[in-house]
C-alpha cells in the first residue's frame, strides 16, 4: 500500500498508511473457517484498509473484480501497459515465489504489480512478504488471482483514480485514531475488538486436552500463525501501530502519543509471549494447558482495553 502511494507521488511510510486507514483491529470469526479452523485477525480486511485511506488522502481507489480469468488478465495487462501500478488480491498457494512452507490456501494476500515483460509474459511483482521484487509467470498469477474458496479474490485489482495528496495531519490523525479505538472498544458485536479477545479466550479454554490433544494443538498453532505470519511486523500488528503512533506524535504535535506507543510495544511483546507459550505447548516442552493460554488472552484484552481508553483520552484532549 505504502509503496503504491509512493509511486503516485505521496511518500507515506508503511506504519503511517496502516494507522491512517485505522487498520488495527481484532476479530474472531468462528463462522469463517480456514481448513476447519476459525478466522482470527489482528487487523481490518484489506478492502477496508484501501477504503480507509481514501478520505484522509483525498483520492478514489478504483476496485474491479471479474467474472472470468481471461477478462481479469486482459484488464491487468491494459492497466500495466498504461503505466499504472496495480494492487492485486491473490491466493498464496498458487504463487511460485512464496516459500513452499507458506503456501496454504489463504486467499486474502495482497501484492503489487508494477510492470510486465512483454517478451515472456512475466509480471513484475512487489510482494510485502519478500524483501526484493520478483517475477511471476502470467499463468500462475492469473490462477492465484482467480482461486476459489473462502474469501475468493475474484481477480480483485485496485488502483487510484486520481493522485493522492498529503493529508491535513492535525485533523486526519486524531480522526483515524478515534476510529480505531471505537472499533476496539465499542463495536456492538462481541466478536470484534477487546470483546472478541475475551470470546476467543472462552473458546480456547474449552478446547479438549485429553480427548483430542492433536486437534487442540493444531487450533492454537493456527492462532499463532494468524498472529505472527499474516502481514508485517509481528505481534499481531501492534508493533506496526506503535510505529505509527510514534510518527503521529511528531506530525500532530501530541507527545502523549509517543508515550502510548511505548506501552503498545509492551502489549505487542505480550502477544509474542502468547505465541511463545503456545509454541512450547505444541512441541510438548510445556504441558498442554488451554486454560493458561486463555488467561494470557484475557490479560491481553485487559491491557488493550486500558490502552485504547488512554489513547482516546490523549487524542481528545
Amino acid at each position: 500500500m505504502s509503496s503504491m502511494l509512493r509511486h503516485y507521488g505521496l511518500p507515506l511510510s508503511e506504519p503511517m498508511a496502516f494507522g491512517l486507514s485505522s487498520a488495527l483491529a481484532f476479530a474472531y470469526l468462528p463462522f469463517i473457517k480456514l481448513s476447519g479452523l476459525p478466522l482470527v485477525s489482528w487487523r481490518m480486511p484489506p478492502k477496508a484498509i484501501l477504503r480507509g485511506l481514501q478520505k484522509p488522502l483525498g483520492f478514489t481507489m478504483r476496485t474491479e473484480t471479474f467474472r472470468t480469468p481471461e477478462k481479469g488478465a486482459a484488464r491487468l495487462n491494459e492497466l500495466l501497459d498504461a503505466g499504472q501500478v496495480v494492487g492485486l488480491q491473490a491466493s498464496v498457494f498458487w504463487l511460485p515465489f512464496i516459500p513452499p512452507d507458506f503456501r496454504f490456501h489463504f486467499n486474502a494476500h495482497n501484492l503489487l504489480a508494477y510492470g510486465r515483460d512483454a517478451s515472456n509474459d512475466d509480471y513484475l511483482i512487489s510482494d510485502p512478504v519478500l524483501e526484493t521484487a520478483v517475477r511471476c509467470p502470467a499463468a500462475d498469477l492469473t490462477r492465484a488471482r482467480f482461486a476459489r474458496g473462502v474469501l475468493a479474490p475474484k481477480g480483485l485489482l485496485y488502483y487510484p483514480a486520481n493522485p493522492p495528496r498529503a493529508p491535513e495531519w492535525k485533523t486526519a490523525l486524531p480522526a483515524a485514531i478515534k476510529k480505531t479505538t471505537r472499533i476496539m472498544l465499542h463495536t456492538p458485536v462481541p466478536l470484534i475488538g477487546v470483546k472478541g479477545m475475551l470470546w476467543l479466550a472462552r473458546a480456547v479454554e474449552r478446547l479438549p486436552v485429553a480427548a483430542d490433544a492433536q486437534a487442540t494443538k493444531l487450533h492454537i498453532g493456527h492462532l499463532v500463525r494468524m498472529q505472527e505470519e499474516i502481514g508485517t511486523g509481528g505481534g499481531g500488528f501492534r508493533f506496526l501501530y506503535a510505529a505509527f503512533l510514534e510518527e503521529a506524535a511528531s506530525l500532530a504535535q501530541r507527545p502523549a502519543l509517543a508515550e502510548l506507543a511505548a506501552e503498545l510495544v509492551e502489549i505487542g511483546d505480550g502477544w509474542r509471549a502468547f505465541a511463545l507459550a503456545a509454541a512450547r505447548m505444541i512441541r510438548d516442552r510445556d504441558p498442554l494447558d488451554p486454560a493458561r493460554l486463555a488467561q494470557c488472552l484475557r490479560a491481553q484484552a485487559a491491557r488493550e482495553r486500558t490502552f485504547f481508553a488512554a489513547l482516546i483520552r490523549a487524542v481528545c484532549e
Binding site: 512452507d101 494443538k217 499463532v224 505472527e228 505470519e229 510505529a243 506507543a261 511463545l276 509454541a279 505444541i282
Partner: peptide
C-alpha cells in the same frame, strides 16, 4: 522478514529478521 523493533535511540524501526523459532514450529506443524 521485517519486524518493527526499538532502536538504541528509542525510536521504532524496521529490522530484518531471519525468523523466529515459534513461527517455524507453527508453520511446520500445519
Amino acid at each position: 522478514k521485517g519486524v518493527y523493533a526499538r532502536r538504541a535511540d528509542g525510536r521504532l524501526a524496521l529490522v530484518p529478521s531471519q525468523g523466529w523459532e515459534v513461527e517455524e514450529i507453527v508453520t511446520r506443524q500445519a
